[in-house]
Design a protein around this nucleic acid. Structure first.
Lengths: 226, 226
DNA sequence: GACATTAGTCGCTTTATGTGACTAATATGC
DNA sequence: GCATATTAGTCACATAAAGCGACTAATGTC
């Protein structure tokens, strides 16, 4: 991925907030960039310069793939951020948030590293704002897109699904309520397999299989997923 | 409001989607701009060029005030749009949506005119997309900010409030349900005044007065308003 | 075999919402 | 004055979703 020389002031950059579930938390991908001024090593959200003629989503997809090494299961634009300085010295950051499934959370290059949201290095004001609004954007859209399902492997237990929702939402859910809502949406179908995970009763494996639709505006709202 | 000369390619523009309630519909403010190529008169969403050193919200507020002649009761960023051509020839449009109260929907200049959403002139692809997403953005945030209340005069009848919600949401609401939700949120307090509007029983006037808070995530959700 | 642990289900309660019907107070037409 | 249309405001019932605790089921550990 080519970038403009450091000296030139970017019109705008496309910044990536790549998130992945990791050990029951959310982790974000940061890139090591040495600051041209103080030569300190800093961690920043991966970004790429603007390119004439390419659409925003195309630039974002390329940037996501370059930094994470894989295609995200979902991504969307968060907005344009202009407050405070940017490591690329650009006036504007157009931010895209992307979710990467669990397995692909390994990084080849030494320049990239995953950080738990609870253990972040020092970030600039703009970077912090972009990150926070990205997490909010994910939570807001959780009712509309089957993000949690796609973050899991093809087959999964209902407890795993619930834990994924809890991780993404940042709050605990009640088992019975969760399954009731899930059942009402016919979004999931059981397989013949069961998985015994150490102690405790084995869990039945399910697969994601969108079927019927419903109306309404409540709870965890599986019914709006599509 | 100064603008860059036509020949120079803008880095990005800040585009304004100003909306106002008008005759039971939503209306959007468009600006008359003559195209430099074919010299045809075209209606476009008001925009202003980027300016170094000024924050996005400041630019947007100035652009809104310049085009509508008043401060909006609420505005927010919708996002960055880069698909298709822009009248300012800029690569990027950073879009802000703003709501203007009923009274201020009069325009001095001949260059600006309000159009019902149902009677729009021909717009480019990008303009249409920006407008549509702006309306969606307003509806999505209607549960979080007391937009409808602030669009009305200081005192209003509950029917007026309901009609404002219906106008903004684009769908009919049931009177009893609406008032029940409103009462549960203690967002409104009655005044001593009543208004007799032609035929029919006079309606009591209310004023907006935020009080208690609640939890939950349902219905029209007055309870999240702040 | 007792116990801890996780899966899965049931039923009751609480709360929110949809809906129609009812009463109240005004203006209009006769 | 009086029937009627019209708008305001309220009520009661039905439906639906969500919170919650308790129960059974199936496994591993000691």
């Amino acid at each position: 991925m080519s970038r403009e020389p450091r000296g030139k002031r970017q019109q705008y950059t496309v910044d990536v907030v790549a998130l992945t579930p990791r050990d029951g938390q959310l982790a974000v991908l940061l890139e090591r960039r040495s600051d041209s001024k103080d030569k300190l090593v800093r961690w920043v959200l991966p970004w790429t310069g603007s390119k004439a003629g390419e659409s925003l989503t195309d630039i974002a997809q390329a940037a996501i793939k370059h930094s994470t090494g894989a295609a995200p299961i979902w991504s969307t634009q968060v907005g344009a951020f202009g407050d405070g300085p940017h490591p690329g010295e650009a006036e504007l950051s157009i931010v895209y948030v992307a979710l990467v499934p669990m397995g692909h959370a390994t990084v080849q290059s030494d320049d990239f590293q995953w950080f738990f949201l609870s253990e972040l290095p020092a970030l600039t004001e703009r970077q912090t704002q972009m990150l926070e609004e990205s997490v909010v954007a994910v939570r807001d859209r959780l009712d509309l897109y089957p993000v949690a399902f796609k973050l899991l492997p093809a087959t999964f237990t209902l407890s795993e699904l619930q834990h994924m929702y809890e991780l993404l939402l940042g709050r605990r859910l009640h088992k019975a309520s969760f399954r009731r809502a899930l059942a009402a949406a016919t979004l999931v179908e059981p397989t013949d397999e069961w998985r015994s995970e150490g102690r405790g009763r084995p869990a039945q494996l399910y697969r994601f299989g969108p079927k019927k639709r419903r109306r309404g505006r409540r709870g965890v709202r599986f019914d709006l997923l599509g």
